[in-house]
């Protein structure tokens, strides 16, 4: 085959592979193949390679289909579908939108916390018109958040709670089921304090593989 015939045969093969060959192109291909029977093998190989590439690109395309724009641009019909804001890697790494919405959610939570703090008159001291949170049984508890705030306030009074770690840690965010606002899953961490009779440290493991503990001894202070 001449170079020009080769080039033409390649184009014809390509059209066949793409399912775009016309009847005339098929006749032309058959004409060339009558002189060069190896063309049929080349056609088969081209179809095999194209099928492999399509298979790979189909998987990549399916991945791309999972990538939606951030929540504010989603069409109503898409709400509730699987999208980037609910997708998480197995290692819980926040994706790039996740990181962005994380900051947003953290800011929103901070605002909500501040509002709640003011509404409850600080750490449970009560203001005009507020329920006095003197004890769990002495007032009507409005929500789990009220209980949590009471726990912090009571703990701070008796010294068992030092405080809440600022900046709740965002685990997940997604559009609220109602379609208004967002549902955020976050961790609130509390620092507690306790007096214990002894401290122990893990010294090693026994024959059964269980940890063995050793009591911690305070250094003896020598006085002059």
């Amino acid at each position: 085959m001449t170079n020009m015939t080769n080039e033409r045969a390649d184009i014809l093969i390509s059209h066949v592979v793409d399912g775009e060959a016309t009847a005339e192109q098929w006749r032309e291909l058959e004409g060339i193949a009558a002189q060069e029977p190896k063309l049929w093998r080349e056609l088969a190989e081209a179809q095999r390679d194209a099928a492999a590439l399509r298979s790979a690109l189909r998987v990549a395309g399916d991945l791309a289909d999972r990538i939606s724009l951030p929540a504010s641009v989603d069409a109503p019909a898409e709400r509730g579908s699987y999208d980037i804001r609910t997708y998480r890697h197995p290692n819980l790494r926040l994706n790039r939108f996740g990181t962005w919405t994380g900051w947003l959610a953290a800011a929103v939570i901070a605002i909500i916390a501040a509002v709640q703090f003011n509404q409850h008159g600080g750490a449970g001291n009560g203001g005009p018109g507020n329920v006095q949170p003197a004890g769990l049984g002495s007032n009507v508890v409005k929500s789990a958040s009220d209980l949590f705030n009471q726990y912090i306030a009571t703990g701070q009074k008796d010294g068992s709670v030092l405080g809440e770690v600022p900046g709740p840690m965002l685990v997940e965010s997604r559009p609220a089921p109602s379609g208004k606002g967002y549902e955020v899953i976050f961790v609130r961490q509390v620092v507690e304090r306790a007096i214990v009779p002894d401290l122990y440290k893990i010294e090693g493991t026994n024959d059964q593989g269980q940890a063995t503990l050793a009591r911690y001894r305070q250094p003896i202070r020598r006085t002059m």
């Binding site: 690109l57 990549a60 395309g61 991945l63 791309a64 289909d65 999972r66 990538i67 980037i84 994706n95 790039r96 939108f97």
Partner: peptide, 24 residues
């Protein structure tokens, strides 16, 4: 987005996450 994935595959380094680039 499906053909954007193909362009990214053409030019991206092997180790780079396709999903991250699609998000970008």
């Amino acid at each position: 987005r499906r053909w954007v994935a193909a362009v990214l595959i053409t030019y991206k380094p092997r180790s780079e996450d396709l999903e991250d680039l699609l998000q970008d």
